[in-house]
């Protein structure tokens, strides 16, 4: 049976982890490769490295991080942040990433999804989106790290992304991100039901119950989480044991 996936996310700025596992055993806790190895050893199902470096002058730094990560982990990993063209995708995938995730650049240039899927295969192309709940009840996708509204509804955008060849959707609900108050189950479920490609829920995980809700009620195929694992509130093992005990299929 296909297992649901647990995916820790590392935020990387200028080649250094700014939000990562808070664990004394690491020799250099700021090194993304060391963090990635830690989660590989913990048997995370996949990893996401999110490049939050503001300046595009630092692309080479991220490419080097990706290359070194690929040398040391044996689970699939996705790289997002700052990918604006097919050439950017090629650089990151050739360095050893399994998938790339695009967000604002896909909204600005939807053809990028199709071009990437045709060139590298749909399985490589993750479309990330940051919807916000609006007063009128719509779920407006925001760009530029959640700052700019687009007037596009999350369900419409994810269907469009699927039609263009996206292989997976990563949905981060901005109102929830960093709150530890739980995923937005309603949006996650609506998006998951709107498409027939896998959906990763992100934003808000604070307890193991939250992971369970997103994977069951929210119908997500995978959960992405940062703080809950980085601060060692729970280990990946604990999360898996908990979810297994509640009947969620997991790689054990």
């Amino acid at each position: 049976m296909l297992g649901k996936r647990i995916i820790p996310c590392l935020d990387v700025d200028k080649g250094r982890v700014v939000k990562g596992v808070n664990f004394v055993g690491l020799v250099d806790a700021g090194d993304p490769v060391e963090q990635a190895r830690y989660y590989d050893a913990e048997e995370a199902d996949e990893l996401v490295l999110l490049d939050i470096t503001a300046s595009s002058d630092e692309r080479d730094t991220m490419v080097d991080v990706v290359r070194r990560t690929a040398e040391h982990v044996s689970i699939p990993f996705t790289v997002g942040g700052g990918i604006r063209s097919v050439d950017d995708m090629r650089l990151i995938l050739a360095a050893g990433a399994d998938k790339v995730s695009i967000n604002t650049s896909a909204i600005l240039e939807p053809q990028l999804i199709r071009d990437g899927a045709e060139r590298f295969g749909s399985q490589c192309i993750v479309v990330a989106m940051d919807p916000k709940r609006m007063d009128d009840g719509s779920w407006d996708v925001h760009t530029h790290g959640g700052r700019t509204p687009t007037g596009i509804d999350a369900r419409d955008w994810c269907r469009r992304a699927e039609d263009l060849g996206a292989g997976e959707i990563l949905i981060t609900v901005m109102d929830k991100d960093g709150t530890l108050s739980g995923y937005d189950i309603e949006i996650t479920r609506a998006v998951s039901e709107a498409v027939s490609i896998p959906v990763i829920a992100s934003g808000g995980a604070g307890t193991l119950e939250h992971l369970y809700e997103a994977l069951t009620e929210g119908k997500a195929d995978a959960v992405l989480a940062a703080s809950i694992f980085h601060f060692r509130t729970h280990t990946i093992r604990e999360a898996k044991d908990y979810l297994l005990s509640r009947g969620v299929p997991m790689r054990s």
């Binding site: 297992g3 199902d45 399985q123 997976e168 490609i197 995978a222």
Partner: peptide
Amino acid sequence: VPKVPHMGWNQ
């Protein structure tokens, strides 16, 4: 099947 591609860990 609910989702294609079949993506992730299976037995």
